[in-house]
């Protein structure tokens, strides 16, 4: 139908683009609200909640720049500029906490990141569905157990008197070690616990990615005589590489997010040296020590750095895969 010319005016009616009678902006909004007020009513509680419980504290962050006193309140306390931040960066404990946070995150990444991938690949190679399902049921479980219980289990297992670990050491004639009071043992125990608790559950993301690989790829590889080992390397891993990279970027973006609840549950003054992280530092200084303004300054620093990291990670992963975090 190439010979068909563009068809301008034919029927007489409404041919010219009509001038739209522009109702006033206010009138348009009123009309819209009259029609759709209900969805705004549905949104209102959530937005109000966010304002009261999450945005109002952001306003409260100003105490990081103030000499906060409970009696004067947030608004009326005097401004003191960056004094708290100066103190903060001259504070050995804070610097130590910052260092510990980064070190523990880095170790967590180094040892913790590959395990779920490995698990997913291994699950994928299991032939018996029953075996696979039962194993998955078991390894997902710790994810749902509270940190208090996990910490309780760790403390019991590593206890110097009755703990299973020391009992086992005893079989080899080794002296019992009071693990949880030794700074050099804190990080391995903390990171090991994290892997034990979360690796299974984290493998779900990769298993889903593997499930998305087209079976025809494997079928043609079988026809070509590939072994399972070769198929894993040549098909499965390359196929889930994008997922791996995105998860890695996200993990790096969240590097300041140490599960400090677990740290609080496991550390003690003897291990602060290696165990204290930024959030536990804030907890002790602020909530236990009452230095709200100083602790808030540490928190603000933490939040800003975390925000920048997360946004950067989000941007990169968006660019990488056109799928963003949220």
């Amino acid at each position: 139908m190439t010979g068909l010319p563009d068809t301008p005016s034919a029927a007489g009616s409404g041919r010219k683009a009509r001038e739209v009678r522009k109702p006033g902006r206010l009138q348009r909004i009123t009309e819209h609200l009259r029609r759709e007020w209900q969805i705004y009513a549905m949104l209102l509680p959530t937005v109000l909640w966010m304002v009261i419980f999450l945005y109002k504290p952001m306003y409260g962050l100003q105490i990081a720049f103030k000499d906060y006193s409970v009696f004067r309140g947030i608004a009326n306390s005097p401004w003191i500029g960056l004094e708290h931040f100066e103190t903060l960066f001259n504070n050995d404990q804070f610097l130590r906490a910052l260092k510990n946070t980064i070190i523990m995150s880095a170790y967590g990444l180094l040892f913790g990141f590959p395990v779920p991938i490995l698990l997913a690949l291994m699950f994928n190679e299991v032939l018996s569905q029953t075996f696979k399902k039962s194993a998955q049921t078991i390894v997902y479980l710790p994810h749902f157990i509270s940190s208090v219980i996990i910490a309780g289990i760790v403390m019991t297992a590593f206890s110097p008197s009755a703990g299973i670990v020391n009992t086992a050491l005893g079989w080899f004639g080794l002296e019992p070690v009071y693990f949880l009071t030794k700074p050099e043992w804190f990080r391995p125990i903390f990171i090991g616990t994290g892997i034990w608790q979360e690796a299974g559950f984290q493998s779900i993301v990769y298993l889903a990615a593997i499930a998305g690989v087209s079976p025809t790829l494997y079928e043609s590889a079988v026809v070509d005589g590939a072994s399972r080992w070769q198929m894993m390397w040549k098909i499965t891993i390359p196929s889930i590489l994008p997922t791996i990279i995105i998860m890695l970027i996200i993990r790096i973006g969240n590097i300041l997010e140490i599960s400090f609840e677990m740290v609080i549950l496991l550390y003690q003054p003897a291990t602060y040296e290696t165990a204290d992280v930024v959030n536990t530092f804030i907890y002790r200084q602020g909530l236990q020590g009452g230095q709200y303004d100083f602790a808030a300054a540490a928190g603000l620093f933490n939040a800003v750095v975390a925000f920048v990291l997360v946004m950067t990670a989000n941007t990169i992963s968006k660019r990488y895969s056109r799928t963003s975090l949220w």
Binding site: M50, P57, L300, W326
Partner: peptide
């Protein structure tokens, strides 16, 4: 905008102290 109001709270968090004081 409203989605951003929600999503922003996942990226930026005032932290322990302001939440507690609030």
């Amino acid at each position: 905008f409203w989605n951003l109001v929600v999503a922003f709270t996942m990226w930026f968090n005032a932290g322990l102290i302001p939440f507690f004081l609030n």
